[in-house]
Amino acid sequence: MILLHVSLAAILPSGQLTAQEEMTADEILKTLTETMNPEQSHGTMTMTIVTSSGQERTFKYETFSKDKGDKSLMKYLEPQRVKGQTILMLNDANDIWTYFPRTKRVRKLATHAKKQKVEGSDFSYEDMGASDAFIEEYNALRLNDENKEGRSCYKIELTRKAESNASYSRVMLWIDKENFIPLVVDYYHEDDPELHEKQLVCHDVELIEDIYTPMDCTMFNKLDNTYTKMHIVDITYQVDLADDLFTEMGMQR
């Protein structure tokens, strides 16, 4: 669900502005979902947790992604406390494995573990994975367009489907009309659609290898008064990652 990459190819030419204006919520969401996950990527990111008392913890990790986010792997580089720990997510994060180098143990997590915080951050495993969750788990409704972060945005309201187990009852998205990057995402509590739980804000959008990429995203936890900053140190989309990387042996490599 963390929306980081938007393919330039997906952006409609200016001549199709009228068609763009008439896009339905489902079409906007489909375009966003299809384009926010590039075919493959390999990068280095930092994640900084800031507590309500101002304490900070910074993690650095290497990320690999394939098949439009269906397969992803995160390997921690820093700090030493977690160096080498690896998280493998397959099938849109419906299958999660973690590898702990200090004990050489691979542990498979059940789906409910997606609700757990990643290294104590304000991102859950569900926030980090599940590339098509917005389409699969929610019904979409287009509201009146609004300006957000100084940009003209589509405003989409997502309501959780009755059969869904998603962790948020409602999600509000403000999607940049020009590049389909979700600039602001509001997440509402699982049991209370009016209780604002988290807010994701993305900025510093750069064009990297023809793909618009927000270099910085911050997840604010409105209930705990904490936030977690995520920054892309470097990223490339022109990679050919082997399937073997996204396996139990690949985690230990």
Partner: peptide, 10 residues
Amino acid sequence: IVGELIGMGI
């Protein structure tokens, strides 16, 4: 064996 059943890890 490890997996899940009715939403719970088993």
